[in-house]
């Protein structure tokens, strides 16, 4: 059976890692390629780069980061952030990324999912969903633009649509849990995993090793993603995996 995956996420701006980096054993802790190689050595199963550059130059720099990373690491990696056209996907995949993450652009133009899937295969298309509980609805709502805009779209409907359009995977971030370190949003993850027939990467809220086992067992997630806790060395990938093995969860 497939192993559950542990995925560190790196926020990159103008070719530099921006969020929470605390590595003493790297020559240049701000270099995303060096950090990626370190996570590879530590046993990460996959990596996600989120490009938060606002400028054209910053985005061009990201292509170079992707190319260098592809030459350095031995695990698959996804690149997301600001991708709104099939041509953007092509440039990033050509540079050596394995998958493309799309979020706001897919909500605004769902055809981007089907166009990308037809062109590159579903396995390349990761639809990232930022969701927040809407108490009036009694269910979760999709947010766009980095969590700043409510879309009026129900998250469970959106993930079903994304799947039917050809998404290969869902990267699900709970805005309610994000930053709390109190654990992943089990209810949301479970609801999305049950609604979708494609793998779900749970994100937001990880603070302790046990949180990963919870989201795999109770949330039925296929992978768990975290950023800050790994960057600040509050947790290591190896420690998370040791705990999962103890709990009887299959990991690499």
């Amino acid at each position: 059976m497939l192993a559950k995956r542990i995925i560190p996420c790196l926020d990159v701006k103008d070719g530099r890692v921006v969020k929470g980096v605390n590595f003493v054993n790297l020559r240049d802790a701000g270099d995303p390629v060096e950090l990626a190689a370190l996570y590879d050595r530590e046993g990460a199963d996959e990596l996600v780069f989120l490009d938060i550059s606002a400028s054209v130059e910053g985005r061009a720099t990201m292509i170079e980061v992707v190319r260098r990373t592809a030459g350095e690491i031995t695990i698959p990696f996804t690149v997301g952030g600001g991708i709104s056209q099939v041509d953007d996907m092509k440039r990033i995949l050509r540079a050596g990324a394995d998958k493309i993450g799309i979020n706001t652009a897919a909500v605004l133009n769902p055809r981007l999912i089907s166009d990308g899937a037809r062109r590159f295969g579903s396995q390349c298309i990761v639809v990232a969903v930022d969701a927040k509980f809407n108490s009036e609805w009694g269910e979760w709502e999709v947010y766009t633009h980095g969590g700043r805009k409510a879309s009026g779209i129900r998250a469970l409907e959106w993930v079903r649509q994304a799947e039917s359009l050809g998404a290969g995977e869902l990267l699900l971030t709970s805005m309610d849990a994000d930053g709390t370190k109190d654990g992943f949003d089990i209810a949301l993850t479970r609801a999305v995993s049950d609604a979708a027939g494609i793998p779900v990467i749970a994100s937001g809220g990880a603070g302790r090793t046990e949180h990963f086992g919870e989201v795999f067992r109770e949330g039925r997630a296929d992978a768990g993603l975290a950023a800050t806790i790994f960057h600040y060395k509050e947790l290591t990938v190896a420690a998370v995996k040791d705990e999962l093995r103890r709990e009887g969860v299959e990991v690499r």
Partner: peptide, 25 residues
């Protein structure tokens, strides 16, 4: 789920120069 995507464990069935000295993983 299709595709079969992710990390899966190899079961070695017979010796081969490719797997020589390696453990299943």
């Amino acid at each position: 789920k299709i595709p079969h995507m992710g990390w899966n464990r190899l079961d070695f069935l017979r010796p081969s120069p490719l797997t020589a000295g390696l453990e299943e993983g």
